[in-house]
Structures are given as C-alpha cells and as structure tokens.
Design a protein around this nucleic acid. Structure first.
Lengths: 135, 135
DNA sequence: CTTATTGCAAAAGGTTTGCAACCGA
DNA sequence: TCGGTTGCAAACCTTTTGCAATAAG
C-alpha cells in the first residue's frame, strides 16, 4: 500500500510524533500534537508537524480522520438520508437507507451514546471509479 | 428546531441560493454556488453566499454535509475500526464493529459502488453530552 | 423610517511551501 | 559527502467579519 518511492531518513521529530499518536487515543489535531510535543522539542515548528503527519499518512503508519474535502459541501435535500463519499473522485452521493436497525443494535452493544441514524458518512469507491480501477 | 429569534428579510440573493440548492443534487461548495449564481447576479460576493448558507443551515432549510471539524484529526491506530463523532462536544470515539454485514447488504441493494466497511463516520451524542441534555 | 442585507476588502484560521541551515546514513 | 529534514516565514485557501451603502417591509 505505501507507495512512497523516495528515500526516507529517520528523524527524532517524526519518531516523537509517531510515538505521541501511538500512545494517545485522543485523535488529536496537528496543533495539539505540536503543542504537546514542544515540551520535548522546544524548537519544533508547526510546519514540521504537518509535513511529518502527511508523510506518515502516506506511509500508512497513521490515519487521517477526515471528511477528506478541502471545503464544506451543502445539500438542499433535508429529508432523512445518508451520504456516500468517493475516496477517489470526492463526489458525494445520497444513500436512501430504509433499514437502519443496525444503528440501534450497534448503539446497544459496544457504544455508549446515541447515534443519529441519518447522519452517517460512508466512504469507498463509486461506480465510475470502480470501473476505472481495471489496471 | 429553527431557533432563530432575530428578524429575517427576504433577499433575491438568498432566494437564488436556496433555489440553486433545491434544483441541484450535486452537493456543491460555497464557491461552486457562488460561481454558478454569478451568471444571474454578477455583483454577488462570496461573503454573501457564505452568510446566507449559514443562515439557511440555521433555519433548517438546507444542510451542511460536513465532518464538522475546523481542522483535521489524526489516529495512530490503523487497525480496522470506525469512528463516532459527537455533534455536541466534537470528541471522536472509536467504534469496534465486528458485524458489518449491513454494509454489504446496503451495497447490494440501492447503491452502485463499493463501500469500505471500516471507513464510516457515525454522528450523534456521546454519553456525557447525553446526560447533560437534561434541561 | 428602521434595520436586515449586500458588496467590498481586510482579517482570521488552518495548512502548505520556499529556502538556507542542519542532520542522518 | 549527499540528500533528506528542520525551523522560519511567507504564501495560500477557505471562511468570517467590519463597515458604509443599499434594499426590504
């Protein structure tokens, strides 16, 4: 999966970032990591944190928890429905799901809280990008 | 639901934005709306589009399709799991879901594409925010 | 007439990037 | 030594905001 061709040298800063993420289950932002890591690396810069985070995502060592879009999208359809977002082309599709029982069962089992049935984002590959996948 | 107390006057610009969103199923961004609407309103400004979009979301006339976070979050845990994001406090929780059959059945029914089982974002209220809801 | 809304431009985040110095192998 | 990485600062992009002018009721 990691399609990084260029050479990679280790760095104390990157090691610290990885270590921070492996030992913190808080899903922090770049800025949080930056501030926490400054205790050990007083001179580290935010740019270094950002650069290392994208490299680590590229290497598959960490994951980005994100919608993946640069800017917000809007929907004129306010009826209950969910969305599917294509990881490849970024297009957003409506998902009309009649059976949302799984949400209740999920909430009843290993989750403490209330999941709103019609505010779920599914990711994957859309039809078009699936067919282009023949290589 | 719409908890807007202040007075609202209609405006041609806002009407055009609503109309655009009700007639386009493309889930556009503010910038896309801005550019498309400029054909009829050459002097409209991006600020106006943004202001109206947030007002319309507040009024419940449109919906924002978004992760809801200001900045990206990162995860050191790359094992297959999903995430739950609290609409109230923004905290992110891990969801370990063993039974993802519903994803396949969903994909087989009304969806054309491939949903990646472990890249789903569920929204709602977390335990803490649920208990604070007593008012 | 009163005040909500606009257009404009500046400001405010978050993220990326160019560059010279520095560090790793 | 060679080139990957850093710190710094400037640039970039999306979104927000202050303000005077305009439009709505």
């Amino acid at each position: 999966m990691p399609a990084v061709t260029r050479n990679i040298n280790r760095s104390k800063q990157r090691d610290a970032i990885v270590n921070y993420l492996k030992t913190h289950k808080t899903h922090p932002t770049a800025d949080t990591i930056y501030n926490d890591i400054k205790i050990d690396f007083p001179n580290i810069s935010l740019g270094t944190v950002y650069r290392n985070l994208s490299l680590l995502v590229e290497l598959g060592e960490i994951k980005k928890i994100s919608y993946g879009a640069v800017s917000e999208h809007f929907d004129g359809d306010i009826s209950p429905h969910n969305h599917f977002i294509c990881n490849e082309c970024g297009k957003i599709f409506d998902l009309k799901m009649d059976n949302l029982d799984f949400v209740d069962s999920l909430a009843g089992n290993n989750f403490d809280g209330r999941i709103t049935g019609h505010n779920i984002y599914f990711y994957g590959l859309c039809k078009d990008c699936l067919s282009k996948e023949e290589d």
